[in-house]
Design a protein around this nucleic acid. Sequence first.
DNA 1: ATTGACAGCGAACATGTGTTCGTGTTATAC
DNA 2: GTATAACACGAACACATGTTCGCTGTCAAT
Lengths: 229, 229
Amino acid sequence: MSEKPLSKRQQNILYFTRGYMDEHGRPPTIREIGKAVGINSTSVVNYNLGKLEEKGYLDRDPDVSRGLRLTDKADGFAHSVAQAATNIRNAVERLVKIPLVGDIVAGKPVTTGNDSFGTYDEEDAVELSRAMLSEKPEGLFALRVRGDSMIDAMVNDGDIVIMKPQYEARNGEMVAVWLRNDTTTLKHFYNEGGRVRLQPANPTMDAIYVDPAEVQIQGRVLMVLRQTA
Amino acid sequence: MSEKPLSKRQQNILYFTRGYMDEHGRPPTIREIGKAVGINSTSVVNYNLGKLEEKGYLDRDPDVSRGLRLTDKADGFAHSVAQAATNIRNAVERLVKIPLVGDIVAGKPVTTGNDSFGTYDEEDAVELSRAMLSEKPEGLFALRVRGDSMIDAMVNDGDIVIMKPQYEARNGEMVAVWLRNDTTTLKHFYNEGGRVRLQPANPTMDAIYVDPAEVQIQGRVLMVLRQTA
DNA sequence: ATTGACAGCGAACATGTGTTCGTGTTATAC
DNA sequence: GTATAACACGAACACATGTTCGCTGTCAAT
């Protein structure tokens, strides 16, 4: 495969076309391209479009106004700048990034990492569609489960739990609770008068009953996520 | 807010426009719309486009060829019918819609519902970010787990499993297998010479060993997803 | 010096495409 | 009945837009 370098003009044409399409939702005309790239003659634009088509950066429909569209190959060029805007738009609209702030282990309380607020590594985030969440995504955080101690909650080592900060619970909600005996567990919460029933998600296992003073709710579990690579 | 019913024609125009844009990457001309919707006169199309603009379903740029684009309001209309095209667009971007094609029950083999191909309800889909999947999203499907029979796989009633169609497995992969004794289970797969070891995800439970002829792999489990409303 | 490929220019051309106008049809209200 | 509005039609018009062609300049190979 021989290298086919693009002239500065051709790069500009790709770049402008991408931007024009993002802005207007339709491809530009030859004259619009010429004006933007600084070409006075439509034939020159036409000539370069032909070259770009040869090289596989775009497809053209003959005799059709605005009959051109960029191919995947052209993405590499135009994206670099214009893609940022697209990403932001997508993120704002439908994608939600939930920070993976730490681990949840049986013998330690949940630490939301408030001290290092906002400083989590970008890589360590869970990306979800807004449509998958019933809650507003503000304030949500994710924790990775460490150890096998949550198996009674049907949660495995390595699973990720999406949590909403919350310090009281309604009956039936699944919450992360910190018990006085120095354990953190995930259980369904039921306030039954003077006592609290903590019901494992695993229906074959029995509930445990504790004094309300013994439980400290650390957040509600919205979702459990397991990737089996 | 007074109701503004759209005529059949206007609905068709929206529908066609959406499809045309998805297919060609540019808006249609008045004449193209007319031809597709069965209107011989450009002025009639123009008239209806004006009405649609009044009602807020599209924006027009005067004196610009193909100078129309659909607004968000039009999405509702075009989606219901042109959903397939929308799915393609989503896939191209960052969100992946995985069809929720059915249930997975202990006593029944996995049915991917190939017969009713593409006819799944839009509501019944799982929306994920491409970044959450290591696989290409093509061909993936989702199943809802029914019953408590998968608890040894750490999968609960109501959980959703994202699956990739696959009929053989490498060691360690978690797969949905159909056993000769008329059960479907989710297990880690290990081919150990003459026999197959099926290892539950729950580390406290023991593996089972079966004859390779007894197992029929129905797909690989990429992800398990539990929403705790 | 000559050739040929490549890039560019501007003008003329053909047609693609939005717009306008006069008219006809149907339905509803008075 | 008439009036009015909404919807539809086809033709003509204006100009937006892709295409073609002759010409010039540059540069490397011959």
